[in-house]
Nucleic acid binder design. Structure first.
Lengths: 145, 145
DNA sequence: TATTGTTATACTCTATAACTATA
DNA sequence: TATAGTTATAGAGTATAACAATA
């Protein structure tokens, strides 16, 4: 077998990039949870609300998007429904399915939530168009897109 | 009023970058939790173990690193201690302080945990040295470093 | 039979507040 | 008084298993 390509792991440059990505992840959550908390939402609730503000969908599909078990979605949607941000509607095509959909209030909250998410706006604003293009391309390649 | 500088938010390019960062965050957690689960650890436990494998430290400092309340650290360290991966030691300089430190077993587990974290290795391996340098610089600027 | 959503259960993480032992 | 760590408590997220309704 040819010598395996394992150098990146110990490469100082790669370690530095990994460190920076960890920092991005940390910062991302910090700001996301903070924005959610401003609206008395948990991170999970904010994610579901943001998801449903784009499109109503069955409980099962929310679980797939969140990468969690369907049973968990019941509780999260329950809490959003109690607060009047989301409602469950029957699916005309399949009576087993419940479609979760944002209410008018939920749509407004989702919009304000998105507006208060400074993560992207502020830090990326410091980069030029070309730099953002370069960052986009590098991230895409890194993610295998 | 003069045209406000809010273009980044609605700029399609920036939105794309934000989307990609969200994907990086998601992928990062997915792989981290997966690697932790391989060793029957939760994400929080794995983070603390990794932290302590670098350096023993007081409970309070762990809380600051994790950005959580000190009372939570008690339980996390309890569970690691029950499994023999971590131990509490007195601080000779201050008898109020308990220093959490990895055991030999904990050090080995932390090393295997780090080894199974493919996130950095695999995706960054596809980038050239110059590309990784560019990515590093862009991330640093984005993070304000 | 298979699928959708729910319930029941147990565990972990989380913040808050009160407690203890030191300082 | 102030600080370090813990305990007690309550709420939220998570996975697992079992269930009712529907396909």
């Amino acid at each position: 077998m040819a010598p395996r390509t394992d150098p990146p792991l110990t490469d100082p440059l790669t370690l530095e990039v990994v460190e920076l990505i960890g920092e991005v992840v940390s910062r991302y959550h910090e700001e996301y949870d903070e924005a959610a908390a401003e609206h008395s939402l948990t991170g999970a609730q904010a994610r579901v609300l943001a998801l449903l503000s784009l499109e109503a969908m069955p409980m099962r599909r929310i679980a797939r998007k969140l990468k969690c078990e369907p049973s968990n979605v019941t509780g999260i949607v329950d809490r959003l429904e109690t607060r009047g941000l989301v409602e469950r509607r029957p699916d005309p095509a399949d009576r087993r399915v419940k479609l979760a959909a944002v209410t008018e209030d939920g749509r407004r909250t989702a919009a304000r939530l998105r507006a208060s998410l400074d993560f992207a706006r502020e830090p990326l604003g410091g980069l030029s168009y070309d730099e953002r293009t370069a960052l986009r391309d590098l991230l895409k390649r890194m993610l295998g897109n």
